[in-house]
Write a protein that binds this DNA or RNA. Structure first.
Length: 193
DNA sequence: CAAGAGATCATCT
DNA sequence: GATGATCTCTTGA
């Protein structure tokens, strides 16, 4: 069943943990694609220097300040999109970055969208995942209760996971060491160990 | 296999 | 005008 808005209104850490083992569904004219989430990161509030919203409320970060259960998609490095899910209460900027998923359905379609079609390389990283799932900024602000992009609970308990510091945020001072990255143990589909 | 460079642009100063 | 929540390819051991 589709995750309700109340799921995303929990604390960002809880959402990030509980997303592991949930299923990301992308409906698209080319075909539908489904992946099992195996890696997430939490970005929490205006004081978190790794969180874009620590720079203030701008056109780019506006979605993060909005209500939970919406997609925050941004473009970076001139090449890649990143998919986040807005969490917590309206007015408090926080989100969970989806970093990796295990391909489940629509694998052939994912391969056509990706350079390297090896199964383990289709969505093992936030940029790769957005390519495989055809996520771009047209989905920024999309409601996750809609039919284009959403998460599904298929009755699987949250798998065993571990926490590490987040990737690529060396500039974030004391926040760079916080264990806000969560990854499924024993999954070969994470971005890195 | 590890390390490094290059690609390329929206966003903020 | 600088930089980034990245990826791929190339290089060298």
């Amino acid at each position: 069943m589709k995750l309700p808005r109340s799921f995303y209104e929990q604390t960002t850490i809880d959402v990030a943990k509980q997303l592991l083992g949930k299923y990301l569904v992308r409906r698209h004219p080319e075909g539908n694609v489904v992946g099992r989430v195996v890696e997430t990161e939490a970005y929490i509030g205006p004081q978190d220097l790794a969180c874009h919203a620590s720079k203030g409320r701008t056109a780019r970060t506006e979605v993060m300040f909005g209500p939970a259960g919406h997609a925050y998609v941004y473009f970076i490095y001139g090449f890649y999109n990143m998919l986040n899910l807005v969490t917590e209460v309206k007015g408090y900027p926080a989100a969970v970055l989806i970093r990796a998923a295990e391909p489940v359905d629509g694998i052939e379609l994912m391969k056509t969208r990706r350079q390297n079609g090896a199964l383990r390389n289709l969505a093992s990283g936030p940029g790769k995942l957005c390519q495989a799932f055809a996520v771009d900024r047209s989905l920024n602000g999309a409601d996750l209760r809609g039919n284009v992009l959403y998460l599904e609970d298929r009755g699987e308990p949250v798998p065993k996971f571990r926490a590490t510091p987040r990737i690529g945020v060396d500039y974030a001072g004391k926040w760079k060491a916080k264990p806000y990255r969560f990854l499924v143990r024993d999954s070969e589909f994470v971005s890195k160990l």
